[in-house]
Design a protein around this nucleic acid. Structure first.
Lengths: 255, 255
DNA sequence: CGCTTGCTTGAGGTACATCAATAAGAGTGG
DNA sequence: CCACTCTTATTGATGTACCTCAAGCAAGCG
């Protein structure tokens, strides 16, 4: 049975499907199977933990709206943010295959989260080869992003690091159909510091300088500038590591 | 047909199987299938590229002996080493699922490499669920290691960073049945610098200090100290992120 | 041997951290 | 709608871990 476009828009996991389609092409049958995947949508407040270190989980979480971040903490208590999750991102696919979580995932603002039973997801993967591949590809892209962060923190100065970090988020939001120039990022300067391996004070000074040059938007709430070309140049940003493929018109989920 | 232990020792991909068993348990049938997997073993000299950025590959490489590293380079030409590969590590499983390589992999010393046709590996995965799971788990563990490097570089000082880096390699070598105290690591101080986000000069000074304290072995060729407990304490090293499970006696490949 | 590659050491500079205080929002309850 | 509190942003002064440049040395290797 073919599903009309209008209907597809409605189904709960649509942002997730869109996310998978960023890297993989799915047939109508695959999409239909994802549509039928049982899940529960729950709202979570700001700063809620979706995953905690050492936790064992029976279900896997997918971010439907809002933002979250994954982090680890040193024995001295300093935090390193490891990645930012945006709409449509599965946040803990690791748990489908690894027995215990090695880091924590926390919402950045009140968010809506889809939970899928671990076994249901695995069954789906074994029944639909293309979905299994799409999920593996999703893991690999995440992995590529982690590596880019290592490069970013290890080999770029504060200005470039922050610029690169912002470029990545903007690009990923855009790929998910969200305009980064209008949507405020719920990131404090502390978050940016912990994501880039800097201190909040230094992030503040660097951001001020960048704002003065018009590289990023207004003070207070962080807003990205409409045309990020200048920012990308500073950041040495090459989006290839995100592996976002040209949109495939034949299997579009979003209008 | 059951394979005698003695025979298993012989087969070419044994180090790879041992590596998979670090995280997954495989049945005799699975091991037999891996044993039958067609591959060619080739020797590569020091500094040979196994993967190059942008390259498209029909076959996937597994390190049988020796060492290699994965790296990226900024537009300014600075290098960041992203991970070290040791005996048994598959170095480019990404290519099984992603069309193009986003970083380069280079040997650190003359090494022996097994090449498996991309399609053969994928066929094996679809026929043997446990092997597919083992490979996915392998990807996830790699991913966890990348994240730990981000934490290491982002939130620890030079001394701890280097200590942590060395602890990781020692632990991974040990898990593969190699004694890190006797095997010399073919790492220059340049490599350590690029892996930890430091400069070679600073690595040199930090290593000297650590040697003076007896934390690591002799000058010249880098050798790890037999008992790395002190090093681990300094490094804030908790091996859980490596996800090495207790060895499973029922399916041991190595004696 | 000379040449290359990697290690070592010194002097001086700087990008970032730390500490500390103030200001500005943003939410909350009365 | 104000007063209160808590969080986040801002700014200044000072410190330091690490970088840069530069030179000398040791050792492997053709």
């Amino acid at each position: 049975m073919v599903v009309a476009k209008g209907l597809i828009e409605e189904f709960p996991l649509a942002p997730f499907v869109r996310r998978l389609q960023l890297h993989s092409s799915l047939s109508e049958a695959d999409i239909e199977a994802l549509r039928a995947l049982p899940c529960t949508i729950e709202d979570r407040p700001k700063h809620a933990h979706l995953v905690r270190e050492g936790m064992e989980t029976r279900r896997t979480a997918i971010l439907m709206t809002g933002f979250a971040h994954r982090y680890r903490v040193t024995s001295e208590g300093t935090r390193q943010i490891l990645t930012i999750y945006v709409q449509g991102d599965p946040v803990d696919l690791d748990h489908l295959f690894l027995p215990e979580a090695d880091d924590a995932v926390q919402t950045l603002q009140s968010s809506s989260v889809a939970f899928v039973a671990r076994q249901a997801m695995r069954d789906l993967m074994s029944k639909h080869r293309a979905i299994a591949d799409a999920i593996i590809r999703s893991l690999l892209v995440d992995s590529s992003i982690f590596r880019e962060w290592t490069l970013n923190i290890g080999r770029r100065d504060a200005r470039k690091r922050i610029a690169h970090f912002l470029c990545e988020i903007a690009t990923r939001l855009e790929a998910q159909g969200i305009d980064p120039a209008t949507s405020q990022l719920p990131l404090t300067q502390d978050h940016i510091a912990d994501a880039t391996g800097l201190t909040a004070v230094h992030v503040n000074r660097t951001l001020s300088a960048m704002r003065a040059e018009g590289l990023i938007g207004r003070k207070g709430a962080l807003v990205l500038v409409p045309d990020g070309t200048a920012l990308q140049q500073i950041a040495d940003f090459d989006p290839r590591y995100l592996h976002i493929r040209a949109p495939d018109p034949s299997s579009a989920v979003a209008g």
